[in-house]
C-alpha cells in the first residue's frame, strides 16, 4: 500500500492555481474569467486543508470557511457587475472595458 505526503496535495493545488491563472489571462469572457478565479480559490483550499491535516490542527479548515465566504461575496458582487456591464455594452468581452489604458 502506498501512502501520501503533503507535497502531493500541494502539487495538485499548484496545478489548479496555475491553470486558473492561465484561464484568467487568456479567456476574454468576463464570466469565465471569474470562474477561473474561483478555480484559483480551489487550489488554495486544497493547500489549506492539506496543511491542516499535516500540521494536526484545524486552522486550515477554518480558513477554508473564510475562503468560501469571500468567494460567495465575490460571486455576488462580481456577477452583479458583470450583468450591469453586459447591459451597458451588450458584450462580455473584457477588452471592451479598457478605460485604464495608459
Amino acid at each position: 500500500m502506498e501512502y501520501l505526503t503533503l507535497n502531493h496535495y500541494l502539487l495538485t493545488g499548484a496545478i489548479l492555481f496555475a491553470l486558473g491563472v492561465i484561464g484568467f489571462a487568456t479567456r476574454r469572457n468576463l464570466i469565465v474569467m471569474f470562474l477561473c478565479t474561483e478555480m484559483m480559490f480551489q487550489g488554495v483550499a486544497v493547500t489549506l486543508v492539506a496543511f491542516s491535516k499535516y500540521h494536526g490542527n484545524l486552522d486550515g479548515q477554518s480558513f477554508v470557511i473564510f475562503v468560501l465566504t469571500i468567494a460567495a461575496a465575490e460571486a455576488a458582487l462580481a456577477l452583479g457587475l458583470v450583468v450591469y456591464l453586459f447591459r451597458r455594452k451588450q458584450t462580455l468581452d473584457a477588452e471592451a472595458w479598457s478605460a485604464m489604458k495608459g
Binding site: V21, F24, A25, T26, R28, M33, A94, E95, W97, S98, A99, M100, K101, G102
Partner: peptide
C-alpha cells in the same frame, strides 16, 4: 516609463502581477 505596459486590459495586469 510604465505607460506602454499598461494597455488597460484586465488580464494584462494579471499577467504582470503573476
Amino acid at each position: 516609463a510604465q505607460t506602454p505596459l499598461a494597455r488597460g486590459v484586465l488580464q494584462g495586469f494579471a499577467v504582470v502581477m503573476a
